[in-house]
Amino acid sequence: MKIEGNAICLGPDIDTDLIIAGRYLRTKDHTVWVSHIFEDLDLDLGKRLNGSVIIAGKNFGCGSSREQAAVALKGAGVKAVIAPGFARIFFRNGINIGLPLIECECKCKEGADVICYPETGALLIDGVEFHFEPLSDRILAILKSGGLLQYIKANQ
């Protein structure tokens, strides 16, 4: 598995209300979440997400259990999120819908070329190398299936 994208740098403790506000949750239309993503954080951020890798500070995705946060990120074209740590429900949600989440301490440079190998634990940011604990076999299997539902269907 190889993930590539351009870095978008965010701070620590980005909660799921900031990713997608509660007022947009009650719908079946995923595009609503994509079009309002990060609205309360930075109005223009949503437009820059396609093809990006988000590199955030600690505790990304804290707060509400809303899976819409992870769905919105994936829908907006985010390839992966890298952070020193994630809130646990967000972590499960991300993996479950097929959004790679990497726990790694690294230095972010806005727009930098990011290449990441979840199986080996290697991360390159503009050629500078960082290392992380590779994702577990189970998590990799879920990601490769495209998410938990696809994984369950393939293994039933």
């Binding site: 259990s65 809303r66 992870a70 429900i89 949600n93 479950n96 998410g147 938990l148 369950i152």
Partner: peptide, 25 residues
């Protein structure tokens, strides 16, 4: 399927929250 499901730990249950896909599973 709500983050505050940890509340039920008050009764001595192992209680925790998950998202929608986990719950469907």
């Amino acid at each position: 399927a709500d983050s505050h499901s940890c509340t039920l730990g008050a009764l001595g249950a192992f209680a925790t929250g998950v998202g929608a896909t986990d719950m469907a599973a």
